[in-house]
Write a protein that binds this DNA or RNA. Structure first.
Length: 173
DNA sequence: AACGTGATTGTTCTA
DNA sequence: TAGAACAATCACGTT
């Protein structure tokens, strides 16, 4: 494993090689073997066990910005196919943005988080129900989970938050 | 055929 | 409290 592809061979238009430190960790990447060792017991201890319905974490403001940035980046750099290229470029651009500019992204991120909490609530409920008789259960829980998800009505309204314009736009930089 | 990987930062989570 | 893991993406490589 470990494709020996030249990691630094990523040809970006401009050498955005900015040493951002060794990041926090070399590479987390779940080794596909969460069990064993100190892995959380997949019995009925706590969560942390892979669930197909487990809500993914909400994208941070940076990710929200990246989603849009990727389009722009790819639009101007259709030749760039490296994900790392967008990451680096986006990272620098992100740092370049001021609080006011990041505000809209953070707002959206907050919205995502709100949904995440809701999903988590439903997910948590499922866990509680499922925890009663593990996943080894034959049936029963199946009907439940479906109902829960169906209950998650997707009311998408009140999205425009134009008020609150007194945002302190501190350009401390 | 399918998943891991690389790179960014932010958030969420676990011990 | 502090550190670890994971969120999207996309083409490619390895299994």
């Amino acid at each position: 494993m470990k494709n020996a592809k030249g990691k630094g061979a990523v040809k970006v238009s401009k050498e955005a090689l900015k040493p951002v430190d060794d990041r926090k960790v070399g590479k987390r990447k779940a080794p596909s073997k969460p069990d064993k060792g100190s892995a959380p017991k997949a019995k009925k201890e706590k969560k942390a066990k892979k669930d197909p319905n487990k809500p993914k974490r909400p994208p941070s403001a940076f990710f929200v910005f990246l989603e849009e940035f990727r389009q722009t980046f790819k639009a101007e750099n259709p030749n760039v196919k490296a994900v790392s290229a967008v990451g680096k470029a986006g990272g620098e651009k992100w740092k370049s943005l001021s609080s006011a500019e990041k505000a809209p992204y953070e707002a959206k991120a907050a919205k995502r988080k709100a949904e995440y909490e809701k999903l988590m609530k439903a997910y948590d409920k499922k866990q509680a129900s499922s925890a009663d008789d593990d996943e080894s259960d034959k049936s029963k829980s199946e009907v439940n989970d479906e109902d829960d998800e169906a209950s998650a009505e997707d009311h998408q309204e009140e999205e425009e938050e134009e008020d609150d314009e007194d945002e302190e736009d501190e350009d401390d930089d």
